[in-house]
Design a protein around this nucleic acid. Structure first.
Lengths: 118, 118
DNA sequence: AACATTAGTTTACTACAGTAATCTTTGGTT
DNA sequence: AACCAAAGATTACTGTAGTAAACTAATGTT
């Protein structure tokens, strides 16, 4: 199995910017993320190192950055981790908790039902 | 605001054991958790240090452990973090994703609707 | 051409999670 | 009383996240 590529919290804003628009140069990219530029550059470098992001060299001073790990991959990983860790893998328990604590309306649920049933 | 008490992943099994039954001695407690005893003892100590767990001394060699951070507190923290981090705080997006990816049935949702509407 | 600006690389430091061995008591056993 | 087993405390080591300064190279500006 290809070992799971981790994206940690400080790297996430950078990934989000890449997901938002693939193939930007680092300048474009990082101008869309807040924080110390040097730090951001380090984080971007680590993402590349670990294979979450792919670089394409345009010329000696311009690189374009592309997501290797997709947002869906990321969400899936987070969802599964969360579900297992907090609700022992039970979607039922999870749903119940969200509905109760996040005040999800009956209407919102009905809309979901409609969506499923087409 | 009372600063948030973090419970990290390796500590979680210990907390779960405490939530399951409050007030056990460390021996009872840790026998319900797998892993190297020395490690577990360290983790339990850190939980006490950080105030997630409270100790009551019975006598010089026996202590009982009680949860200060409740399971609900923990779940709430995790839920909020997850929601913000992965779905930018949108319960709608989150629900949609779970329903799609975790194959939640229309029936399960209807049961939730009933529950809400009483 | 000299220089400042800026992109990208290297180095670095702290905090903390994860893991566990060792040391120190102290209560139980022979 | 002597000793052992076990509880708990102390110490410790590695890896990685988070943060950022310093260095280097290349480019555009005057």
């Amino acid at each position: 199995m290809p070992k799971k590529i981790v994206i940690n919290d400080s790297e996430l804003p950078i990934m989000k910017a890449i997901w938002e628009k693939d193939g930007r140069t680092s300048t474009e990219l990082l101008s869309n993320v807040t924080g110390n530029k040097s730090t951001l550059k380090t984080l971007l470098g680590r993402l590349v190192e670990r294979g979450a992001v792919r670089v394409e060299e345009i010329n000696q001073r311009t690189y374009r950055y592309f997501a290797v790990v997709s947002e869906d991959d990321y969400i899936e990983g987070q969802r599964k981790t969360f579900l297992n860790k907090v609700f022992n893998g039970s979607t039922e328990k999870m749903l119940l908790n969200f509905v109760k604590e996040e005040n999800i309306s009956a209407d919102a649920l009905r809309r979901l039902v409609d969506l499923i049933e087409g």
